[in-house]
């Protein structure tokens, strides 16, 4: 695995920041492509594991960038990746926030909001599909992903418990590997 400098890391995440329409989770395919396929900073399984850790921690979904930064370049990588993913989109939110406070609520902006939200949802669904592939967990993995999705969709169970449950079921189904 090659190691990047801080600058390529900053460029990558700052560039992604402004296109993360619908939240940072839509970035999963882009980050995977850049970090695993194009630059080879991490192998695909390691990347899948980091995704799992970033989802296990509380907080906003920008954490995948932070943990990738930490994994490839330590504390400096963490700080640079986090600032790079946060700053551009936050500056835009700052400017738009001031703009809309003075604008009429039923303006074109409101219509644009309604129009683009479903696209963001579609992008998040695509992220889920690609993340399920990236996990390299086989058929059992796809089944667990589908089950986890259904649980979040139709029940009020805390997502953290869903994740713990999926992890336990998967580990038990691979009992010979884990030595149980």
């Amino acid at each position: 695995m090659s190691r990047p400098g801080l600058l390529p890391l900053a460029e990558l995440f700052a560039g992604l920041s402004l296109i993360s329409v619908g939240g940072a989770n839509v970035l999963f395919p882009s980050i995977r492509h850049a970090v695993v396929d194009r630059n080879g900073w991490l192998d695909v399984r390691e990347f899948g594991h980091l995704f799992a850790l970033s989802q296990a921690a509380p907080g906003p979904n920008v954490m995948l960038s932070s943990i990738v930064g930490w994994q490839v370049l330590g504390l400096a990588g963490l700080v640079v990746a986090t600032l790079a993913i946060l700053l551009p989109s936050s500056l835009l939110a700052f400017a738009i926030g001031r703009l809309v406070r003075t604008a009429a609520p039923r303006s074109w902006l409101g219509v644009a909001t309604i129009a683009v939200v479903p696209l963001a949802m579609g992008l998040m669904l695509a992220s889920a599909v690609i993340a399920a592939k990236t996990a390299h967990a086989g058929l059992v993995g796809y089944a667990i992903a589908a089950l986890a999705a259904a649980t979040v969709l139709w029940t009020r169970i805390n997502p953290l418990f869903v994740m713990i449950g999926g992890t336990v079921v998967f580990s038990l189904s691979h009992a010979s590997v884990v030595g149980l």
């Binding site: 989770n25 999963f28 399984r45 899948g48 594991h49 995704f51 799992a52 850790l53 989802q55 296990a56 949802m121 579609g122 998040m124 669904l125 992220s127 889920a128 599909v129 993340a131 399920a132 990236t134 996990a135 390299h136 967990a137 059992v140 993995g141 796809y142 667990i144 992903a145 589908a146 089950l147 986890a148 999705a149 259904a150 649980t151 979040v152 969709l153 997502p159 869903v162 994740m163 449950g165 999926g166 992890t167 336990v168 079921v169 998967f170 580990s171 691979h174 590997v177 884990v178």
Partner: peptide
């Protein structure tokens, strides 16, 4: 490694389920 692979599959499901909801 096995647990994290299972966790990654589950996390993918969480993202998908949240988007669908």
């Amino acid at each position: 490694r096995t647990a994290l692979t299972g966790a990654a599959a589950s996390a993918a499901g969480l993202v998908g389920g949240t988007a669908a909801r």
